[in-house]
Design a protein around this nucleic acid. Structure first.
Length: 772
DNA sequence: CTACCAGTCCTTTTT
DNA sequence: GGACTGGTAG
């Protein structure tokens, strides 16, 4: 056995050396799935079962793609850059650049990120005079993306009711606008590529013949369109090797379809399903807790993780009085662990929603602990960087309306809403390019690319016609961009970026702002990024995949695609030893020696909104499963009895997920739980309607009942035995009923509706209330 | 046209 | 509690 296959366990080995056939690898958390994927590729190449050009490896994130390339180049004496390894979006981008004519796109098409797309949708909603309250742009955006991910163009969407018809109209108008601007959104990359392969059988056959081995990572995260895309590329001689874990499917809210795993087994008549169940990450108790929790889900393919490591410590559970107390506890433990020699960067605080991070950050800051929060604005998403990129986009493609609207008045140059409106009107009334042979404004097509990228009706092309004040200022802006185009001709990418930013007025503008120094720093960083950008990374030769051809894409377009597809690292402070803070979602794929899962409360985790969704509770449970399996040796679970949320104190019950982990695996650091658990069990009688519905226990009604009773029961324990709905007697005000409550402990107050004296707020620490 | 203030709405997120 | 939006005053 050759060196690189050593240390594989029997299942991993079987997966890596599987004959050329379709296979589904059910890879549990921490079971070495990335290792299996990369070793599989290396094995195929070393045994001459495939050349590098015959392999297509698809991941979900850039990070995963990079890691695969890094590991591969360590195993093989080849440059993996020439290989088709990348994200779905990155690979589709590659394909569309190569076949842009067939796909009906200009070669320099720009990519809209979500924010750009939302702005574009807003323009559509406005221009169609649609009521924004009835059709919120976010909803419209979601509608469009969801349809695209089903593979449906506007005209293919069946619209029964007037509302849907309106959505469809906006979808159609949005697509037309994108086509005219020469821009493509994320889901469009997929759909356009899919359509290209459907319509062009020669092309499809070429790729299907070429890709003998298609390997897919995180298969449970694929959406329907991605699955169909894979099917198109999978020819009669191709083998599809899908790796995934249905228990870690946590992205259904954005279109991921776990059902693809079952469909794959059926559609491809998969004979080989291999389960990787040995976990190399977590100690026994942590793993047992994860297994016990996830066993409560009904819809599973089934899998049980085990480890050769010992049991390790029990899970430590802390029930805090409040979110502040919870934060304080975490800080204390982190400090203690740090003193014991655990590096900060090997500890992580996980939470269900971003809003929870603030309190913990505050406590960490107060204690002087270095921390790093994931999930903030990323480099290429920062306003100043997007502004600079918009200038660069205009230099590349001035017809890009999105870019033009973003910066035509930034920094302010007297082009306000009225001027923009005048320009939009002019563009709308301009002769449109419905007949593709009609040249636009004398910018006759010297070649096909020019025709595709210089369509009439763009804002840019309408500027010269404008008269008056709006015309003057906009023409000055147009002159600026044209000047930049001329001055940067022949310059390198880095020089172009430096020149455009220097003459955009952005530096001067931010120089005047109080907080502008950071922004200018980021602009300089952007110039550095452009200077250091290696376009070869983004360019592959279409015919062979083995050589690179710099003429395929110009460096500026490549850089702009890179900026959109890979928004850059989350935040600075990369190398520093800092405590890691992130949502459970963004923790997927990571591991830490010590993990804190905070906010394990009904309503928060599981999130109350998820209880209204079909199978929402199961997805929340998978999320908890992902969270637990991040920990190697120590896992803390924390609950807060009260929590400030949206400026209001809320009372929550401990999460049901705590009840789903066997007591024997847990060590309670606070004593109150059993008492509270008893109350939780009693909670139903406080709310008879809920218990009646809960009886028919579908996930939905049971979940809703529990969430509702939580609100009734939680104040009872926080209010020293009082609860909402309870009858009480006050020595002065007489008899009444508690109707509301806030605060806890000595701060607790209740609102009582007295039959003779009306509604009053009373502090429990002061008022002498007696329960009846 | 810009700058400031009040009212609203709150999951999760990668590409 | 805070980010974002829309309206109004300057």
């Amino acid at each position: 056995m050759s060196l690189y296959l050593e240390h594989l366990n029997p299942e991993q080995h079987a997966a890596v050396t599987l004959p050329e056939q379709h296979a589904l690898i059910l890879a549990g958390a921490g079971s070495g799935k990335t290792r299996v994927l990369t070793t599989r590729i290396a094995w195929l190449i070393k045994n001459s079962l495939a050349s590098p050009g015959q392999i297509l490896a698809v991941t979900f994130t850039n990070k995963a793609a990079r890691e695969m390339q890094t590991r591969l180049s360590a195993m093989l004496p080849i440059n993996p850059r020439g290989m088709w390894i990348g994200t779905f979006h990155g690979l589709c981008n590659r394909m569309l650049r190569a076949h842009h004519r067939d796909a009906g796109l200009p070669q320099t098409f720009q990519i809209l990120d979500s924010a750009d797309q939302l702005a574009a949708v807003k323009r559509i909603v406005k221009s169609m005079n649609v009521d924004e309250d009835k059709f919120p742009p976010r909803e419209v955006q979601w509608f469009i993306n969801a349809r695209k991910e089903e593979g449906l163009r506007a005209q293919a969407v069946g619209a029964q009711d007037g509302i849907t018809r309106r959505y469809v109209e906006m979808y159609a108008a949005y697509d037309a606008q994108c086509q005219r601007d020469g821009v493509v959104d994320f889901s469009e990359l997929l759909l356009r590529s899919y359509e290209l392969l459907t319509r062009n059988e020669v092309l499809r056959a070429h790729y299907a013949e070429r890709f003998r081995h298609i390997l897919v990572d995180e298969f449970q995260d694929t959406n329907r369109l991605q699955y169909r895309w894979l099917r198109l590329l999978c020819g009669p001689n191709s083998a599809l090797f899908a790796v995934g874990d249905d228990d870690q499917s946590i992205y259904r809210f954005r279109g991921a379809n776990v059902g693809n795993m079952a469909d794959f087994e059926r559609d491809f008549a998969v004979e080989k399903v291999i389960r990787l169940e040995q976990n190399y990450r977590s100690q026994g108790n942590i793993l047992s807790a994860a297994n016990a929790l996830i066993a409560h889900n009904e819809n599973r393919l089934g899998k049980n993780l085990w480890t050769a490591a010992g049991e390790g410590e029990p899970l430590r559970v802390y029930e805090a009085n409040s979110d502040l107390d919870e934060a304080r506890f975490i800080v204390d433990e982190v400090q203690a662990l740090s003193r014991e020699g655990v590096p900060y960067q090997d500890m992580a605080v996980l939470y269900r929603s971003n809003a929870q991070s603030r309190v913990i950050e505050h406590a960490l800051f107060g204690a002087g602990i270095a921390y790093r929060v994931y999930g903030g604005l990323r480099f290429f998403e920062r306003a100043e960087v997007k502004h600079a990129l918009a200038y660069l986009r205009l230099v590349a493609t001035p017809e890009d309306d999105n870019a033009l609207l973003r910066v035509c008045n930034f920094p302010p140059r007297g082009i306000g809403a009225r001027s923009v409106e005048a320009l939009v009107d002019a563009a709308r009334n301009a002769p449109t390019a419905t007949d593709s042979n009609t040249p636009a404004f004398g910018l006759g097509p010297d070649n096909e690319d020019a025709r595709l990228s210089r369509l009439a009706g763009s804002l840019w092309s309408s500027i010269p016609q404008l008269a008056g004040k709006a015309g003057t200022s906009l023409q000055a802006f147009r002159a600026l961009i044209e000047r930049l185009q001329q001055e940067t001709r022949g310059l390198t990418l880095g020089e172009t970026a430096a020149h455009v930013i220097a003459h955009s007025g952005l530096i001067e503008h931010y120089g005047k702002e109080r907080e502008g120094a950071d922004r200018i720093e980021n602009l300089n960083e952007l110039v550095n990024a452009a200077t250091g950008f290696d376009p070869a990374e983004a360019i592959i030769d279409i015919a062979t995949g083995e050589t690179t051809d710099p003429t395929v894409v110009d460096p500026l377009t490549a850089f702009l695609s890179h900026a959109a597809l890979e928004a850059g690292e989350h935040q600075a402070g990369e190398g520093q030893d800092a405590l890691q803070m992130m949502t459970v979602h963004s923790a997927k794929g990571l591991e830490f020696q010590v993990v804190f899962i905070s906010g394990l409360e009904e309503g928060l985790f599981p999130h109350e909104q998820s209880l209204n969704e079909r199978d929402g509770l199961e997805e929340e449970r998978r999320l908890a499963y992902v969270a637990i399996t991040r920990a190697r040796t120590r896992l803390y679970l924390t609950v807060a009895q009260t929590r400030m949320l949206h400026g209001q104190t809320r009372y929550n019950l401990p999460s049901r997920f705590l009840n789903e982990v066997p007591e024997t695996l847990m060590k309670w650091l606070t004593p109150r739980y059993n008492e509270r658990r008893a109350r939780a069990d009693d909670a139903a009688w406080l709310n008879p309607g809920a218990s009646a519905r809960g009886h028919f226990s579908s996930d939905f009604s049971a979940g809703a009942a529990a969430a509702q009773s939580a609100r009734f029961a939680a104040p009872a324990s926080a209010l020293g035995g009082f609860r909402i709905g309870q009858s009480v007697i006050h020595p002065k005000f007489g008899q009444g009923v508690i109707v509301d409550a806030e605060g806890a402990g000595s701060e607790a107050r209740v609102q009582v509706n007295f039959s003779r004296n009306g509604v009053k707020w009373l502090a429990l620490g002061v008022a002498k209330l007696t329960a009846v």
